[in-house]
Design a protein around this nucleic acid. Structure first.
Lengths: 206, 206, 206, 206
DNA sequence: CATGAATGAGGTTTCATTCAT
DNA sequence: TATGAATGAAACCTCATTCAT
């Protein structure tokens, strides 16, 4: 029973039409914001009829929540995957930065939505995102900062507020990217900036 | 023809109406964002008729631009004033942080609008704000970082990108404030974080 | 008593402010039509405050009626004056044409209002104008066509319908003028056309 | 995917809605003029919701342009059809007149819109109509006046200005019709008037 | 599932008119 | 008389959502 339901669910989730809708919606939300986004434009860009979108999402509001979940989850997963490939905590900090940037550069629309909603007026969206980004918070805290401090690689600091600062900084920096995914900042400098702030014993010796 | 004092009277009344409108609009934009903001609600909150707002602003769009200008200018002026009261560059960094936070704490709605528009979808608003914040950029660069580096107080770094990083960080952190102007972060920690990142010789000796 | 009232009335009618308002209104109505005309633009063009216009005209509607009366009366008077300078009925036909054209060329805005309102949707305006143009109707009929026919200069035709046709033709032709008062038609040809239609024994021997 | 006959069904329903909208709009524009016309009244008269009209016309302005095109084209086609049934150029002149009148009598609302817009303040509408009436201009010139003059039936005159005069006269006369399509003029007299003006060798031998 | 015309509440903006000064 | 800010009804238009096909 359960698997059958799961399969059907997945089938729906992965439907090609749905994918086209999500893709079009992401671009629309990125360009226009939530209120400015237009369902008709989305369906038109996706090449389906207006009503079709309501077979996949019960409302515009639910749609953006679903999209935020998908993007945020993918973002977190990508970052986690990148970081866990490294064992050196200093390099993990750099990797974290590269991962945030890399994701945004590869998916500029998704990035824009994320940052816009994170700062936007709608509290529901913000809370939704905060929840989604919990794993990333845990990741930074538990798999970089705390062990790094314990090993004396980083200066001993309050792990919670330091994590918040790092996340804020990284997300803030991620928001400097333009619509093409480019940023005016030099990753190496940013990494060095953060590592100094963490009191890292050794910056990357590259 | 009309006596002068009458005119002054009227001028004052007009500016009062304008003030009420701006105040109401700031709250509305902060709560709802640009697209979600509602002219009728604004005029109602300001206690005037719907049409009255168009005696002061030619359109909703022009209104937010005017408001962004006013807020941004006030913000920059406040920060500049705070910073110039100090001569020590290390303390200036702390003051900068306190000023950003302080302004936002005192004017949470204004803060929300700023951060929302800075990250929002509308490119026009972003460019408008970037222009308005030029003085703050110059301030950080010319009156804190560059002289601080020249005097050996800060590590020698690229002043432009460092300024961008600091602004991004501060504004990003400013965006962690809630609707009451409170932030979960400890200012002292944030200041220390930044000063370490700047390679400051002496953190505040508190 | 009566003269005093008359004088005051005239004073009001001839007030310089009123003249400026009428001039501005004529241009506005000519450019925008009645519904499209804008009281604020009129007062601004006249260099007075918005409310001032209501010291001279009780409403927009009454204003255009007053303006239509003034223009129509002036037009009729001008035509009558021109025609009565001639005794030859054939030449009177030509003079009539020249007078219609001449007035419109000298007063293109007034002309446009006349023709627009004559054809426009508002029945009140049309009836108003028809009444005003009664004298011109009588003029053509009683002082050109009927005596001309009686003297055998024009073919014997029904004077009423012929008058209507001539007026229609002239007004129609008057409506070919552009905003500068120019028309693509050659007056001489038009006069010859009409005179042939009237079966005139002799067209102008020029 | 949907069966074809269903589509045809829907297409037919759409064109019915469109027809109802155009019919209602024609009456509204005829009664109120362009600026005075009210979208809500049109949709209400058409028995649809307010927004429905925007499924068929992108704006009020585009709507009247479309309607002007439809009316003008129909008018020209009707006139051309009527005229080409006759070979005698004198009779063609009479037929032209009858056709102009007949169309207006059968379609008084359409007629009113035509004449109102032809004389109204809006230059765009006028230019639009001038373009639409080009075929009628060519028709009068190439298929009545020029051959008639070549065959010596009409006096030799400048064909262009004569065409303009005839069009002006006919359209001007058409504008004497009231809301029921009636005119105070006698068609026979008008025809005789024009034929005399053209120097026709033989007026209709009735 | 797909379609897309229809819906109608709601949004921004306009503007003739008023009235306190 | 002159002023012009205030009024608020009404206009045009948008758009998320529905539903019959």
């Amino acid at each position: 029973m359960a698997p059958r339901y799961k399969n059907e669910n997945r089938k729906q989730m992965m439907s090609e039409t749905r994918e086209r809708l999500v893709k079009a919606a992401v671009e629309e939300f990125a360009r226009e914001g939530y209120e400015g986004a237009n369902i008709s434009r989305i369906t038109q860009a996706a090449g389906v009829a207006t009503g079709t979108i309501y077979n996949y999402f019960p409302s515009k509001n639910e749609m953006i929540l679903a999209i935020l979940s998908e993007i945020g989850t993918a973002h977190c997963a990508f970052i986690a995957e990148q970081i866990r490939q490294e064992n050196d905590f200093v390099v993990r900090v750099e990797r974290l930065l590269e991962a945030v940037f890399g994701f945004v550069r590869e998916n500029p629309h998704q990035g824009r939505i994320l940052f816009a909603m994170l700062q936007g007026a709608n509290v529901t969206f913000k809370e939704h995102l905060n929840q989604i980004y919990q794993p990333m918070f845990q990741l930074i805290s538990d798999e970089i900062l705390i062990p790094g401090m314990e090993q004396g690689i980083f200066q001993s600091l309050d792990p919670v507020s330091t994590t918040v600062m790092i996340m804020t900084f990284y997300l803030g920096i991620g928001s400097t990217v333009d619509e093409n995914g480019e940023t005016p900042l030099d990753l190496k400098e940013v990494a060095a900036f953060v590592l100094r702030a963490l009191g890292a014993k050794l910056a990357t010796s590259e």
